[in-house]
């Protein structure tokens, strides 16, 4: 009995030590190798970031609001209506007795009236001229204002156009960066798939097969279907199989994936 117990305890010890040794070996292998790998990893990261434009397009500054051009209120229409000329006074009824005198007086009066009339007319004329000048001035001011406004408008338009241009340029740059990014991923996917394509011996020439691939966000293949068959069924199937076998693919995340990798088309030739 004692020997049996001894033996089984020895066995238990041996088992436990065996597992310890293997865990140690595994830890050594994993940590030793990953430690070695880490250096390479960091180097790769540096290269990656140096070579690639940042995936997010540079933040666009909101365009400054166009300089506000205050609409110049149209100058009030100058009143052009002139005062009606004064009515000529009715000739007073002359007394016969005082006819001469009266006549004289009348004449004098008339003259005075005439003079006054003249004066008044002259004054009127002057006023008119003044008003005219004022009007002229006003008109000129108006024209100036209009011109200024037009200039401002043109300036604003030009600035806006410039901004639009700058924005377009930025957008174009971002689009180009995105496209480059997309192209890089596409090339990676294509290369990965190509590695898995086993070209059947029955393929003749260099036909092209187009497949539509639907991906999940993790880069897993949801669906593959042949869009444009190459004419060789075996090759089409080989490509399809290769796409399935090559998953998961490296795909970008977020917007870029949604726009470009949800569903996309790839073309394959047996020899490229």
């Amino acid at each position: 009995m004692a020997a049996m117990a001894l033996r089984s305890s020895a066995e238990a010890w041996a088992g436990a030590l065996t597992f310890t040794v293997h865990l140690l070996l595994l830890a050594l292998l994993v940590f030793g190798v990953s430690w070695q790998q880490q250096k390479v990893d960091t180097a790769q990261v540096v290269e990656l970031w140096r070579d690639l434009p940042s995936s997010t397009p540079p933040k666009e500054e909101p365009p400054p609001p166009p300089p506000e051009v205050k609409p110049v209120p149209p100058p009030p229409q100058p009143k052009l209506e002139a005062k009606p000329p004064p009515k000529p006074e009715p000739a007073p009824k002359a007394d016969i007795a005082l006819k001469d005198k009266l006549e004289k007086e009348r004449k004098l009066k008339e003259q005075a009236a005439l003079e006054a009339e003249k004066k008044k007319l002259a004054a009127d004329k002057q006023r008119e001229a003044q008003r005219e000048a004022e009007l002229e001035k006003k008109k000129k001011a108006e024209a100036d204002a209009l011109k200024a406004k037009q200039a401002a408008d043109a300036e604003a338009k030009r600035v806006a156009a410039e901004q639009q241009l700058a924005r377009d340029k930025l957008a174009a740059e971002a689009a180009a960066a995105a496209k480059r990014e997309v192209d890089k991923y596409l090339a990676g996917i294509q290369a990965k798939v190509r590695r898995f394509v086993l070209v059947p011996p029955s393929v003749q020439g260099n036909p092209e097969a187009e497949v539509v691939v639907t991906l999940l966000p993790g880069g897993e293949v949801l669906n593959v279907r042949v869009k444009k068959p190459s004419g060789n069924l075996a090759y089409d199937e080989a490509v399809e199989r290769a796409v399935r076998r090559a998953q998961p693919f490296e795909v970008p995340s977020g917007e870029l994936f949604q726009r470009n990798f949800r569903e996309f088309t790839m073309a394959f030739r047996p020899q490229s």
């Binding site: 010890w13 030590l17 065996t18 293997h22």
Partner: peptide, 21 residues
């Protein structure tokens, strides 16, 4: 190979104990 390694280590320890005893 993993199985072989496990068994060989098990026997190694067992043998160490047995022979020492």
């Amino acid at each position: 190979l993993l199985l072989a390694s496990l068994f060989s280590w098990y026997y190694i320890f067992l043998k160490i104990f047995t022979l020492r005893r």
